[in-house]
Computed example of a mutant assay.
Amino acid sequence: MSEVVILSQEEVKSCLSISDAIKAVTEAHKAFTKGRVELPPVVHLNVEKYRGEVDIKSGFVEDFGLIGTKIASGFYDNPKLGLPSGIAVIILMDLKTSIPLAIMDGTYITAIRTGAAGAVAASVLARKDSKRVGVIGAGTQARMQVLALKELFSLEQVKVYNIRETGSKKYASEMSQRLGIEVKAVSSAKEAVSDVDIVVTVTPSKKTLIMNEWIQEGVHINAIGADAPGKQELDPTIMKRAKIVVDSLKQCREIGEIQHALSQGLIKESDVHAEIGEILIGKKRGRTTEKEITLFDSTGMAVQDIAASNVVYQLAKKRGMGHLVKLL
């Protein structure tokens, strides 16, 4: 009989630190670039009646001997009901037999691995002395991105803009305490991205939020929000000025930030400098000058989820954590 371990969000949190997530995501992208990962297209489901969307991301990673599937949703009226807007579940199966091994909360894993992905990209694309961050959006991922960046950079200031001012102020109050640095709520997106080293966009927007003329030389942009057809946060003409790096070109050209610049003919696929894994294994270079604008288009990949959930699964087994269920 096969026993499956079920892990709650609190158990998952106790098994996965930000630093561990950064290591896991780094290894995930390296495995992807080396061809040791199989990922089918993302399944996207709009639930417009309830202001929601569901993504199903799946794949296998030979390095871990695992098949992983994540069902993740974003239902944007949930906070009014006292529920999180983002909810996810991850299932791990043995690669050789397909026997189910674990079912765990994927909400925290999604948040932390996405934050980790931004930090991994910034580690090779942002200026090494980056100290100031401008954030567009004030939700969970706006927090995770900056917490992960703080692991790798000596941050001194964060500016945040959110369409709802109360969200910006709450973010500033909370994050200044968590980070121990100045976190300032500002009144416009332009102010948030002015005079910073790293720009982070983390919204579900379907229209331009950041204009080309606001982006200064030497800035690195982590474009996190666009992960479905039609989503957009950046002026597409920014792509003409930037060194573009993606998590997966196959995904990003369909659902990432670059979809708009490609469809408008502003760039070609050949203008994309690299997938992040190519830089991590030394096949291509990251930032090469202080003045170049760099951009990471992050759509989120199943390989990241599998790598992070593998860390959780292995540590939970070692600690004897979770609830065992005989499924077969």
Rank of each mutant, 00 (worst) to 15 (best):
G256M: 01
T208F: 03
E174C: 05
K207C: 00
N162W: 04
L234G: 08
K240V: 07
A185Q: 02
V246T: 13
Q177W: 00
H220K: 11
L155G: 10
M239I: 00
K206G: 04
Q177V: 09
L179A: 06
Q232K: 15
A189S: 14
I255E: 06
I210M: 03
V193C: 02
T203D: 01
S176E: 14
N222A: 14
Q232D: 12
G256W: 03
L152K: 15
V246S: 02
R241K: 13
L152C: 01
E182T: 12
D235H: 10
I224Q: 05
E156I: 08
E254I: 01
L155F: 10
W214Q: 04
L266R: 08
L179I: 05
A228K: 11
L152Y: 01
I258W: 02
L152A: 01
L262C: 06
K206F: 04
G218L: 08
I181H: 07
R241V: 13
Y171T: 08
S187G: 14
H220G: 12
S173Q: 12
G225S: 06
S154Q: 12
I258D: 00
Y171M: 11
K150P: 02
I198W: 04
L262D: 14
L266I: 15
Q157C: 06
D247S: 09
M211P: 00
G167H: 13
A226V: 04
N162F: 06
K250L: 06
V160N: 03
K184G: 00
G225V: 08
E156A: 00
V199H: 06
I224K: 12
Q157N: 12
E165N: 14
M175E: 11
E213R: 11
I181A: 04
A261M: 01
E254Q: 12
L234E: 08
S194A: 12
K250N: 11
A192V: 07
I255T: 09
I221S: 08
I238R: 09
S173E: 11
V193D: 09
S194K: 15
L262V: 13
T166Y: 09
Q259Y: 04
D197H: 05
K243M: 04
V200I: 15
S263I: 01
R178L: 12
G256Y: 01
G225Y: 02
V245E: 05
N162L: 03
L152R: 11
A228V: 05
L234K: 11
L234H: 09
L155E: 03
E174L: 14
T237H: 15
E254V: 03
T203S: 07
R241Y: 05
I255N: 02
S176R: 10
A242I: 04
K243L: 01
I221M: 08
E156S: 12
R164S: 07
S176Q: 14
E174M: 13
Q264F: 00
T208R: 14
I224N: 08
K169S: 00
K170F: 11
S173N: 10
G167E: 15
Q157R: 13
V160T: 13
Q216N: 13
A192S: 13
S205K: 05
G230C: 09
G265Q: 03
D195Q: 11
A228G: 13
I258M: 00
E213D: 15
I258A: 00
V196Q: 04
A223P: 13
N222R: 07
I181L: 13
A189F: 01
K159D: 09
